[in-house]
């Protein structure tokens, strides 16, 4: 499961970040809590998760801290796919 999903979320994230002037990120680099990215970028990431990966933002236990690093994002998406047995809809 890991590889294609990881590559996809990584590409999608990088394309969002590039519009905020960031061209590369490390696996464990903190994107938002470091102050490197603002709430607008975070909102764009949330919209991506909801529309392309079916993440349920209305879940009152949704842990937004998981979008702070690429590593955690990849883990959240692949664990969700393991749980449901269906890969998220790539949507493009």
């Amino acid at each position: 499961m890991g590889e294609p999903t990881s590559a996809r979320i990584r590409d999608a994230l990088l394309s969002i970040l590039s519009t905020h002037g960031i061209s590369s990120i490390e696996e464990h680099e903190r994107l938002f809590s470091s102050g490197r990215l603002d709430s607008l970028a975070a909102t764009e990431v949330l919209i991506l998760l909801e529309t392309d990966y079916g993440i349920d933002l209305s879940d009152e236990n949704f842990d937004i801290l998981q979008i702070d690093t690429l590593h955690d994002l990849e883990r959240m998406i692949s664990s969700r796919e393991t749980a449901t047995g269906t890969p998220g809809n790539p949507g493009r």
Partner: peptide, 14 residues
């Protein structure tokens, strides 16, 4: 709350 947690604060409270 961190600035990020402000965007989805329900979990923090719970």
């Amino acid at each position: 709350l961190s600035a990020l947690e402000m965007l989805a604060p329900a979990r923090f409270v719970r």
